[in-house]
Simulated scan of single mutants.
Amino acid sequence: MRSRLRYGAVVTALLAALAAAVIAALGLGSVAIPPGQVVDALLPGAEPSPFRTIIVDVRLPRVILGAAVGAGLAVVGAVLQSLVRNRLADPFLLGISSGASTGAVLVLTLGIGATTAVAMPAGAFAGALGALVLVYALARRGGAMTGARLVLAGVTVSYILTALTTLVLVSSARPEHFREALYWSLGGLGSARWDSVWLPAAVVCAAGPLLFALARPLDLLLVGEEDATVLGLDVARFRAAVFVLVSLITAVLVAASGAVGFIGLMVPHAARLLVGATHRALLPVAALGGALALIVADLAARTLAAPQDIPVGVLTALIGGPLFLWLMRARTERGAAL
């Protein structure tokens, strides 16, 4: 009973904080709008006004994209950490995001259907899936796959794909591709528009319940592959299917926002501290925490150096990098394996 009350209090607090962050993100900027007018502008049948235009047409798509990307990356990070039984895993450390970036940049520079809404996500998905297959193959080569081998293979592939992406951009015949793709690769929500928000939002809304439905087999993986097999789980098939699913989610998010790092690594850790490791409790809290974290980070990115819009991926890296090093040190001091 006490655990349910605690979980309800955590979810309620996150929902309240998320609502406050949304109001702040819609109201703060080059034009400050009072919270009351923000709420009025969002109500159905609100009268047209300059404030409403700024909120609905400019800031609201950015907030929705931030919520979708933050929630999606946090949930994907929590799932990946369970799949590989390594708390340091996330889409970036396993090379998925680098592969997605490479695929999306190839579509952008080669002009392969770049005018369509699904061209870059399709290229990003192909790159993410290819990177994941390569990482998985390298981690299994020469012995049993361990969490440490998987992370090391992911870091190696990420460096190679990052170099390949840079080579493609430098070799592009059109200099504007380099500038556009460089800013995009740093991670940002400034390009959010209503016609580009629907795909990542729809993917996260569809994939979230699906991953939540997989909570029980994900819990089984936490006790070990052998025990999970004894309990009736086809570990290899389940892991492969979920890898493909999280690659698809990551690809769509990366295509929409660029490389926003550390959300998928740090938010699941914070969620576990609050509600434990059981996935039925963990995944909703991770989704709310990820949405809250990225909306707040994006608000800081576009107001700290206004009118300059700092890429939000730069800010999350500046915050997440030291936290990641602290986490590695804490695990080492406890004698925990990577």
Rank of each mutant, 00 (worst) to 15 (best):
E176Q: 10
V252S: 01
A117T: 14
V230F: 09
G143F: 10
V314K: 04
P268C: 07
G261W: 00
V38Y: 00
T166G: 13
A117Y: 09
V314M: 02
G208E: 00
L161V: 08
Q308S: 14
L265T: 00
L338W: 00
P217K: 05
S3L: 15
A71M: 01
D40W: 14
V254I: 11
D234L: 14
A181Q: 01
L323K: 00
V246R: 00
L164G: 08
F212M: 07
V285R: 00
V118M: 11
V203N: 04
T303R: 07
G188H: 03
A78R: 04
A256Y: 06
V314D: 00
T53H: 15
A71T: 01
V285C: 09
L214I: 06
G77Y: 08
A21V: 08
H269G: 05
A270Q: 12
L14I: 00
A71K: 03
A68F: 10
L80S: 06
A317W: 11
A256G: 09
D57M: 11
P175Y: 02
A139Y: 04
T278H: 12
W326S: 14
T332R: 15
T53Q: 14
E47A: 15
L65M: 14
L218V: 09
A24W: 09
Y159K: 10
G187M: 07
L231M: 14
L273E: 11
G123P: 01
A153H: 02
F212N: 02
V275H: 07
R216K: 14
G130I: 05
R272P: 07
V252Y: 05
A297E: 12
L288R: 00
I64V: 15
T165C: 06
W198S: 08
V84N: 12
V155F: 07
R193C: 05
L304A: 15
T102G: 12
E180Q: 15
A181E: 09
Q37V: 05
V230Y: 15
S185V: 08
